[in-house]
Nucleic acid binder design. Structure first.
Lengths: 201, 201
DNA sequence: TTGGAAGGATGAGAAATTCTGAGTCTCCCC
DNA sequence: GGGGAGACTCAGAATTTCTCATCCTTCCAA
């Protein structure tokens, strides 16, 4: 029995676009251009023979079919993530290589990321740099700097520092929600006033 | 969010290979070469960082991780099929694997099912065989042969060929009315005289 | 012991798919 | 009317995937 399923990768484009109701934002999350998302979604719609989105002049709306499909596809990806982590816990255990610029380093406790917080489970190495391109190349997983951004293709979380440039955390969109990012952000928040905001997501 | 999921298409190769415990058979089901399946599975294993199969001298065995993964991935594809059929009921998600016996092949145009009729939307693969048991096991969805039948448990449509053994189309009753069967029968009828009849239904 | 068959691995090149980048269009808002 | 946003299109580039040919190991039979 061979099933003619939709090309699985087009489902990723659909799922992200439907969640954001925007090809552009979905593209940022997926790390591709909006054109690519548009083409993938179009391909999915063609293979299903139905429309999933209503293209409005300013933005998107899901069709009835799209509304029905989205939660099931989202669930699918969650199941896959769960099943995958179950057999390959290493994936989640990946430790971050962190870029830290000189001024951000000065704004943090001397021995950060060691010391009070235990980030050893999430951070493999800290490199002194302020080059955001290293995030793009993957040489570092995130960059902590003072100010900077927004970068269209990267996710930025800014930790407001009253009366000064905010400390910012930059990473690829795909890494924004992972536990490593969360742990690092949490640690950073413990050392600067609260009130964070995310841009470019 | 979708942090480093395995490339979704490699999961197809894994799922088929694990079900058959054979790259070769999986390749037949997927309509590609064994080398392609081997490469896809290897890629999946590399991306997960663990082995899913134990390669034995004569065949495959799942590792413990593979055993755990398989039912969850199979379930995933079933869920996807179900969700997809729900929103696109017109789409019968399955492409047929067709069995064609040598003599029936000779009675059809040389390039059938390609050529004039476009059966590519309904036929995944054509296998040369005259073994009706493959229909029962589901390894093929229908069998086209000269004569044969009736088979109590299978549906047979015979396309009369004046002065010769009729060309017959054999499938499970459940598949007799689906669009794939209809499209194939229609194509067959275009190449032999009319007057069909169904038995065993 | 040898030869053949079966199944998987491998690697180069071909084929197919997917992505990018530039340009276009429509609509909204000022 | 003009500028901005977001989606679409298309050609070509980049990447991925597949095929094809070949190799390797093991099993089995003579």
């Amino acid at each position: 029995m061979t099933y003619r399923l939709p090309s699985l990768n087009t489902l990723r484009a659909f799922e992200a676009a439907a969640r954001h109701l925007s090809f552009k934002t979905a593209a940022q999350e997926l790390g591709v251009t909006p054109g690519a998302v548009s083409q993938q979604v179009k391909k999915l719609e063609a293979s299903l023979g139905i429309d999933l989105f209503r293209r409005l002049p300013h933005g998107l709306l899901l069709t009835e079919a799209g509304e029905t499909y989205l939660p099931r596809i989202t669930q699918l990806f969650e199941d896959l993530t769960e099943a995958t982590e179950e057999i390959a816990p290493k994936l989640n255990a990946k430790k971050f290589t962190v870029g830290l610029c000189t001024r951000a380093k000065a704004a943090l406790p001397a021995r950060w990321p060691n010391g009070g917080d235990d980030l050893s489970a999430h951070v493999r190495e800290v490199i002194q740099t302020s080059n955001v391109d290293l995030v793009r190349t993957g040489e570092i997983d995130c960059l902590i700097q003072l100010g900077g951004g927004p970068y269209g293709d990267l996710t930025v979380a800014a930790l407001a520092k009253p009366g000064g440039t905010p400390l910012t955390f930059v990473c690829k969109p795909a890494l924004a929600e992972c536990r490593q990012s969360k742990a690092i952000l949490e640690s950073l928040q413990a050392h600067v006033p609260r009130s964070t905001k995310a841009e470019g997501l």
